[in-house]
Design a protein around this nucleic acid. Sequence first.
RNA 1: GGUCCCAUGGUCAAGCGGUUAAGACAUCGCCCUUUCACGGCGGUAACAGGGGUUCGAUUCCCCUUGGGACUACCA
Length: 554
Amino acid sequence: MLDYNKLAEMLYPNVDKNINKYFQKYPSRNLLKDAVVTRFAPSPTGYLHIGGLFQCVTHEMLSKKPTSVFYLRLEDTDQKREIENAGDLLYDTILKFDIVPNEGYRGNRDDKGIYGPYVQSERLEIYQTFAKYLVAKGRAFPCFCEKCEDKEDIVAKREQEIENNNTTIDHDPCRKISLEEIEENLAMGKPFALRLLSKGNPNAIMEFDDLIKGKRKIRENGKDIVLIKNNGIPVYAFAHVVDDTLMGTTVIVRGEDWFQSVASHIELFRAFGFDEIPYLHTPNICKTEEGKKRKLSKRKDPEADCRFYIQDGYPVVAVKEYLLNLLNSDFEDWRRENPNKYYKEFPFAVEKINTGNPVFDIVKVNDVSKDYISRLSSKEVYQQLLAWAKEYDTEFAELLSKNPEYSMNVFDIERGGEKPRKDIYKWSMVREYYNYMFEDFSKLNINFKELINIDNELIYKILHTYIVLFEETLTKEEWFDRMKKMADKHGFCSDNKAYKANPEAYNGNLSAFCNLVRYAFTGKTNTPDLYSICCVLGKDELFNRLDVLKKKLK
RNA sequence: GGUCCCAUGGUCAAGCGGUUAAGACAUCGCCCUUUCACGGCGGUAACAGGGGUUCGAUUCCCCUUGGGACUACCA
């Protein structure tokens, strides 16, 4: 048996092993009943992943009760994978999704809250103290090996160990190292990794209660896992246990990929003598490829990058509502019954989260988004669209802000009422969709031959008559009556039965007539209500457009 | 390989021992209709397979199969 106090002093001569000062520095939180402290703890290894956003939505929904805390912690303990400014970028994207943690890391700005620092690389001193404490408790030991996995002889040594002892317990051979040997290594200035001295038995089963998976029987940990790397930086497990304890986390939300390691994390909590914190393992968002399901990959899948949705102009609420629906599938029922409520009012239930890994479906996102946008007022559409355009399509932003009232009138067409139009699902599609309302009309590609086979003179005559008879003060019915009369006068047929009986006798039916007018003034065969469009354009503009068309009709 | 997780239509999913097995998206058809939509109505489409337990299994247990994840001094 080693003298662990002595070992602790050897390993960490200038470090305080009194962890209590930290518990004094970071007092326990005053929480009201049902309040939770939850945290999002990404690594600065790239952009915000859709799975991260998925978790953020979970955090938002969990931390609604008064005094609850949702804080952000940056887990930058892997320098090899770290990407410069990724932390900033992450925070920036989180804010863009209108997710506002009320504590913690804030990118370029100072951390907020008294439990910091919230960036792990700034907490090394704390980790050293806790490491020394653990060594003194006899629950950790140094390992001077190079990376074991690279060294066949060490692996062989471990296997031999297992065989000799007739056990399956995979203790690290270095736990038998003598004080003398340690002293020698230290004197040579050899760096060491700190390992957990596991007392678990992987053949023994213990009970574990996951907040969404429920009660599970899992194997005890038996591995002497690395706690602190030989560069002095802790690994996830160690930092997680120390930080979440010190920061007063009450529920640990993390991806399901961590499920396998809970046994070791629990052992660490116990080794320290800390209270265990409940875990909630969320499913991973997948996609199907060649008939197989796989986790959405950062490298391969553009839709895994949350910035994709921002750039493409998906309203952030729509994306979050889609994710929320993945979490609690009765959300859409609630949404239908409460079309005007804010999504956070939804009675979220942890136990309703599905345990399987869902496949991400952009078509469904589109649908949720269409629905969301259809519920907005024209002013809200204008504001959100403009905000998007200012960042991603400045030319369009200028067109939009040239005349805000006009723009809002455009978006007001077929908006509101019982059955609002549901056509737009992302801001980036608006410019093309409404190009006839915002762009230079003379630049639109209009070719009547592609639409209808009647001569140009007649077309011109029809359009001219249309404008002359057009008045903004008409009701829709009156306008439509005029359309019928005009159609009949120009060789079209407003009586569908008569038309069907003898289509050869006419230039087309009423539908064709209306479509001709639509096409002439918009260049499209698919637009919202024609009369409303003409009203928004105004009679003068219609005449302007006819002038342009005149040349094409010569 | 080992360990763990998951398994209802194309997708998300209700269901938690007895149901004509919900609903949404997608898809198809019809209706409404001045186009396109929106909307309405309807259709196609599922309990992976095999054993148990039970009067009775989609539901509980086991096995198989399929898929996923973990298995780092990465998170």
